[in-house]
Design a protein around this nucleic acid. Sequence first.
DNA 1: CTCGATGCAAAATTTTTGCAGTCCC
DNA 2: GGGACTGCAAAAATTTTGCATCGAG
Lengths: 163, 163
Amino acid sequence: MDATDTKNSKNMQETFKDFLSSKGLRVTNQRLAIFDAAFDHPDHFTAEDLLERAREIDDSVSRATVYRALPILTESGLIREVDVGRDYKFYMANRNVTTFQAQVICLDCDKIFEIDAPFMEWYGKTVADKLSLKVESQRLQVTAHCSELQSSGLCKRGGKRNS
Amino acid sequence: MDATDTKNSKNMQETFKDFLSSKGLRVTNQRLAIFDAAFDHPDHFTAEDLLERAREIDDSVSRATVYRALPILTESGLIREVDVGRDYKFYMANRNVTTFQAQVICLDCDKIFEIDAPFMEWYGKTVADKLSLKVESQRLQVTAHCSELQSSGLCKRGGKRNS
DNA sequence: CTCGATGCAAAATTTTTGCAGTCCC
DNA sequence: GGGACTGCAAAAATTTTGCATCGAG
């Protein structure tokens, strides 16, 4: 393992525990199970996905607890919310992300690609300066068709996005 | 009225009727009431807002018909969907918009500002070229706080955004 | 021990859908 | 007149919440 890869699950769980304690929140088995489930997931996941995986770790985890844990996880910065305009939201572990991420949503294979969009930091600053406001968050998404992408093999139809 | 202001409600209603006919859809009183309600609205509105206003024109309009009309209106290009990540969607009449619009969402006064972001056309093309896919739509949003904006008078707290 | 956290189920909220009746073309 | 369209209410689907109980500190 690379020495710079300090963001493995183990270390991150410690970071999460520290975050909970620092906020006066309790370190419960359910929260840790949810955290582990989230951080083990390599891709985007929904609240329901997370519930299912967390229950494999601790079957006492309830849906309500997952929904109550998600805001804590996103506030900690360990998990990122990815809202692509569906009726449910996606989430994703924040591993070694340093630059702003945009999403490319493929309508054909129903996949979400994360891509670097560092210029968005400049854009946010520009908008903020022009209107004299304080940027809280930004979102940049491109919805597209990938028929050509499919032939190149990058986008395999039937990607494992959930229902 | 400016001679270039060809997009007044009257003309636009004709455009809508033509669109319906061209698609083999029927021109009903309810659809026209919904169209008028939408086009008279100066700001962003929700499906529920639209229902309420459409009923002032034709009180036989039902919620279901509003929800069934919205996809038709957006497909016609006369109305634009503005999803800022809440549990309900906003819509807005497309008046004299020619360039790509980004949104600035103010967390303090709960208002949505539409701003020109012409460079997004370049961005979409860049992404498309790099990944060889066909851009369907794009979304760019900045969520911000406007405490300073308030003092400048641009953002009055208590703007009339719905609950 | 104490009070924050949890599970369960009911509620809330927005949008969709089935069906019988209506009215545009 | 025929079939698209509509209204109504029930259904869907995701997220939130009240309450009794549990357990972390």
